[in-house]
């Protein structure tokens, strides 16, 4: 394992939700400072992979490497990453400002410079004057922007997106992807993005990890999705169905 080339890796990880559920296997490496799309049929374990990386689930065997260190048995709060979910990223009873501020201090005790950095983060996602509002007063896209602002104040080197923008319309989705791509580039974040949309993957991801029924079926450039010939079989079946050809 060369820490400088790969920022995130799962090494021979096995996991099952229940004792009699089918065992999932993961073995993959993710390039440092690069956006990787994670795709695959539903049930192939895309979200499970992110949960394992974040420490929300515990692997049965194998190792989890983050920023070159073994984090397999560490608590979620100790891991050098931030995650954005599809929904419920904001605590509904807290203001936009406090929701972002939780990323600086989990007890909400803020110094003047802490407050400054929260304002700065809100400004960089285009929500300067939204601090006092409650999440219910925002649109779906604005709520996800607040979640991204919290990612920024936490300064973690790894970003996990779990279908974060799937419920937004196409235009808004592209806007959010561009925002994330530029922020990830500026802050040198290694980004893993679970998505169902080949367009999204082609739009901002350089790499693709494709999960089949028995674990990782393809690792390579995301351009594989655009090829019309010589495609990986699992990817082809996912994109166009199991045709006769």
């Amino acid at each position: 394992m060369t820490a400088d080339q790969f920022s995130v890796a799962v090494e021979d990880v096995t996991f099952a939700y229940e004792a009699d559920a089918p065992v999932m296997r993961f073995d993959a490496q993710f390039r440092k400072g690069v956006i990787t799309a994670i795709m695959g049929a539903s049930g192939s374990g895309k979200s499970t992979l992110l949960s394992l990386l974040a420490g929300f689930e515990m692997p049965q065997s194998g190792k989890i490497w983050l920023a070159g260190e073994d984090y397999t048995h560490r608590a979620p709060g100790e891991r050098p990453l931030s995650m954005v979910f599809q929904e419920n990223n904001l605590f509904a009873h807290l203001s936009v400002f406090n929701n972002v501020a939780l990323g600086v201090s989990p007890s909400l005790k803020l110094s003047a410079s802490d407050k400054e950095s929260v304002h700065h983060a809100l400004a960089s996602v285009g929500l300067e004057n939204y601090g006092k509002r409650l999440p219910a007063q925002l649109s779906g896209g604005e709520r996800q922007r607040v979640a991204v602002a919290r990612v920024l104040v936490r300064h973690k080197p790894i970003l996990l997106l779990d279908e974060a923008f799937a419920s937004l319309g196409p235009g808004l989705r592209r806007e959010m992807l561009d925002l994330v791509a530029s922020l990830a580039d500026k802050n040198a974040m290694t980004t893993l993005m679970v998505t169902h949309s080949p367009e999204d993957a082609l739009h901002i991801a350089q790499d693709l990890v494709f999960l089949g029924q028995d674990g990782v079926a393809f690792i390579g450039p995301s351009k594989e999705l655009a090829k019309s010939q010589n495609q990986n079989e699992a990817v082809r079946n996912y994109l166009i169905g199991r045709g006769t050809s």
Binding site: A54, P76, G77, E78, M83, F85, N89, G103, P106
Partner: peptide, 10 residues
């Protein structure tokens, strides 16, 4: 997600 986030935020 709330519970997960609270753990991630340490």
């Amino acid at each position: 997600e709330y519970e997960r986030l609270s753990h991630q935020l340490d």
